[in-house]
């Protein structure tokens, strides 16, 4: 029983990371229609910036964090200006391909600026090596931090989107851009804001994941990205709580599969390999999509012809 709880806890922590990424993906997709495959690269670049602040000038972690978040805001705004705006009116698929290209460019540039991060490097964080034991459960400091940050981000986003003028303007733009524009919503201001906001979420996720792994390189977010997309689609690609829930489902499934498959072999094949797990999760995801093409929590959309 303790083993299952322990695994569920680990699943909840990685699930929160998937969920946070999914939330950022949904935030951009809903407002600008960009299916952002560069999201992992954005998170990685921000986390790499943090790493450079921590190791180069040897800044304190808590001093470097706000600087990394400011960097994320600047990166988000720059990407919106230079990248998202020129392709704003292209079809969804074209924009998705463009983000794949953007990911390559971001990673190449980051690798040229910080060549030391082409290989995995140790990521120092104050959470390292701290853990506690509650009733037989082993809980790491970074695990608690991930869960806490996820809760805070979700509450803050909900408050911002529902209670502030700017948040409501963002939701209006997401619902219907031309009408929002006619009602006096500064759409040109909302787009950079969405990108900045989601870049901040990306930076937080990247830094949390790097702290959890204690290892970082330019491409370290790639394995998370595709599962974050699975999470976002399970959540219906439109709803922020749905995205988080999708992330938790993916994370828990992954951990439970790892527990069930651990040490098992089929013939010469080691089924506890992460590749098999990814294939199983992905297969399940496609099955869910077949049964509910709009995702678990999405609503079917009527299309006008």
């Amino acid at each position: 029983m303790t083993a299952v709880l322990q695994v569920a806890l680990a699943g909840g922590v990685t699930g929160s990371l998937y969920g946070l990424l999914a939330v950022g993906i949904v935030l951009i997709y809903r407002t600008t229609g960009v299916l952002n495959f560069a999201y992992g690269a954005i998170a990685a670049v921000c986390a790499c910036f943090m790493y450079v602040l921590l190791t180069g000038p040897r800044l304190n972690f808590w001093l470097a964090l706000p600087l990394a978040l400011i960097f994320a805001v600047a990166l988000g705004i720059a990407l919106e200006r230079l990248f998202a705006r020129p392709v704003l009116n292209a079809p969804v698929f074209t924009k998705a391909i463009a983000t794949l290209a953007l990911a390559l460019v971001l990673q190449t540039v980051a690798q040229q600026i910080w060549p030391q991060l082409a290989q995995p490097e140790h990521f120092p964080s104050p959470f390292e090596g701290h853990a506690t034991r509650i009733g037989g459960l082993y809980i790491s400091a970074i695990g608690v931090t991930v869960l806490g940050v996820t809760a805070v981000v979700m509450v803050a986003l909900a408050l911002f989107l529902n209670r502030t003028r700017l948040g409501i303007a963002m939701r209006a733009t997401a619902d219907n851009q031309p009408v929002a524009r006619l009602m006096g919503v500064p759409v040109g201001l909302v787009f950079p804001l969405v990108w900045a906001l989601s870049a901040v979420v990306a930076a937080l996720t990247g830094i949390l994941f790097a702290s959890q792994q204690a290892v970082i390189d330019v491409q370290f977010m790639d394995p998370l990205l595709i599962l974050a997309f699975v999470a976002a689609v399970l959540g219906g690609l439109e709803s922020l709580p749905g995205a988080l829930l999708g992330g938790l489902i993916v994370g828990l499934t992954d951990s439970l599969l790892a527990l069930v498959l651990a040490g098992r072999h089929v013939g010469a094949l080691d089924v506890s390999d992460p590749g098999i797990r990814a294939a199983l999760i992905f297969g399940g995801f496609v099955l869910v999509l077949l049964l509910r093409p709009q995702g678990l929590f999405g609503q079917a959309v009527l299309r006008k012809v």
């Binding site: 997709y29 299916l35 997309f229 590749g275 992905f282």
Partner: peptide, 20 residues
Amino acid sequence: AYLAIATLGLVFVTVSLLDL
């Protein structure tokens, strides 16, 4: 969008299975 994600997922799964 759903198809784009599903097919990109296929690529990731195929790579890891071939690696395996």
